[in-house]
């Protein structure tokens, strides 16, 4: 049996002193796609932010191992260099810092972390152009500030573009599908499927079953009140779509 890439054991976490995650456990093996579903306020986004190391999201008990390393003790940038990627629910606009600046700095940070040299300009450009095609983003847009003046759909596609460029091993997507029309949703799904491989794992945090029609999960976990209350295969997502979350709340 292969060892888990991500192993979460009895994770408790607070935001602003309020406990949101109350003893959450699951494990993700390389090659797997896990969907985390659940009603608003169940702790889905908190889980994503705790894993990425966002300030203010404090793990108070439990363990998270990534490739055998204690993930919770690492700085967010180190987690990223180790191969963890968080696709934001609300990508941040950063006027004055161009997308290319961010991408180049991010690529070189990873290379430096692994003891490598900086990327050549021509390789960088070719790589960006290649990846931009997958998410149908005009490379011209990348000379603009990060997400500056991007529409909601463009911001989400830009998250996927960053992911395609950085090629993480663990992709955590926090409601990347929310607010997307069907064309944009397909593009986002294509991006995720492009990276799907036996060496990589994916955690899809989503409110809707719709994304899962395009990215087939291996496991579905239902989160409610800070705990996983039910786990199952892809059929669980169908069940949730039909029944809603009400029956779980009552359970």
């Amino acid at each position: 049996m292969s060892k888990a890439m991500l192993n979460i054991k009895d994770l408790h976490a607070t935001v602003d002193g309020k406990e949101i995650l109350k003893g959450l456990s699951f494990e993700v093996k390389a090659g797997e796609v896990h969907a985390i579903m659940g009603p608003n306020g169940s702790g889905k986004s908190t889980l994503a932010h705790v894993l990425a190391g966002r300030e203010g999201y404090v793990a108070t008990a439990g363990e998270v191992e990534f490739d055998g390393k204690d993930l919770l003790t690492l700085e967010p940038e180190v987690r990223a260099c180790e191969g963890v990627f968080l696709g934001f629910q609300y990508p941040v606009e950063i006027p004055g810092v161009s997308n290319l600046t961010l991408l180049k700095a991010a690529i070189n940070a990873r290379r430096k972390y692994r003891g490598g040299s900086e990327i050549e300009a021509s390789d960088f450009l070719a790589w960006i152009r290649d990846r931009a095609k997958i998410v149908k983003i005009d490379p011209k847009m990348l000379s603009r500030g990060v997400n500056e003046g991007f529409s909601g759909g463009e911001k989400k596609r830009n998250e996927i573009l960053q992911m395609l460029i950085l090629e993480p091993r663990l992709m955590i997507l926090d409601e990347t599908d929310s607010g997307l029309d069907i064309d944009a949703l397909k593009i986002v799904a294509d991006g995720i499927n492009t990276l799907r491989s036996p060496e990589r794992a994916t955690v899809l945090v989503t409110h809707y079953q719709r994304l899962l029609d395009y990215v087939q999960p291996d496991f579905v976990h239902v989160l409610a009140r800070g705990r996983i209350v039910k786990s199952g295969g892809p059929e669980l997502a169908q069940e949730l779509e039909q029944k809603g979350y009400g029956w779980l709340e009552a359970a």
């Binding site: 967010p76 940038e77 934001f88 950063i94 004055g96 700095a105 500030g145 960053q162 950085l166």
Partner: peptide, 25 residues
């Protein structure tokens, strides 16, 4: 902007570099 700082760090950019990118911006 803390959220911009967090965003850049989540992409692997260390805190000092992220800060100087934002100040420059």
């Amino acid at each position: 902007d803390d959220s911009a700082l967090a965003y850049l760090r989540s992409r692997g950019i260390d805190a000092a570099t992220a800060k100087s990118l934002l100040l420059r911006a």
